[in-house]
């Protein structure tokens, strides 16, 4: 079973993302939630995560910090990372791409945006 880690300090945002994923065929996946980058890194060290979806603006360790930690780690850098952000900002997009983000999705998240992201980066086999 694939495990998807959703990181956002807003319970509403986490719930919306999970509902969107369930609607596009991830209902059989296990969902794990974290409220910031520090908590997410703790989970990433102990769990086998297939997809990491993170907010940008969070306390303690934000999305950029989490992305740097994941993509800079030989043990974790194979994990696809989607960043979900309310800030539609080309300069920020360039910065995130230089760190290695796999997909940037602008809020509000929707099933179609997540489906496109998964198909473009991980491939349709993610749903098998």
């Amino acid at each position: 079973m694939r495990t998807i880690l959703i990181v956002d300090d807003s319970a509403t945002a986490r719930r919306i993302i999970q509902q969107c994923l369930e609607m596009i065929g991830c209902a059989g996946c296990e969902f794990v939630h974290a409220t910031d980058g520090i908590e997410a890194l703790g989970i990433l060290r102990t769990r086998d995560i297939s997809l990491l979806i993170t907010d940008m603006n969070m306390p303690n360790l934000d999305g950029t910090g989490l992305l740097k930690a994941v993509k800079g780690s030989p043990k974790l850098n194979h994990i696809p990372v989607f960043v979900i952000s309310s800030l539609t900002n080309p300069a920020l997009e360039s910065e995130l791409k230089s760190i290695g983000v796999d997909k940037i999705i602008y809020k509000p998240a929707s099933p179609q945006k997540l489906l496109d992201g998964i198909e473009q980066t991980v491939g349709k086999e993610f749903f098998e």
Binding site: N57, S85, S86, L87, T88, N89, P90, A91, L92, E95, Y106, K107
Partner: peptide, 17 residues
Amino acid sequence: CGRLMALRSNPDRVFRI
């Protein structure tokens, strides 16, 4: 705020809220 920053700010600069 995300939309406001996108509409109001220079897109070449990084936004932060």
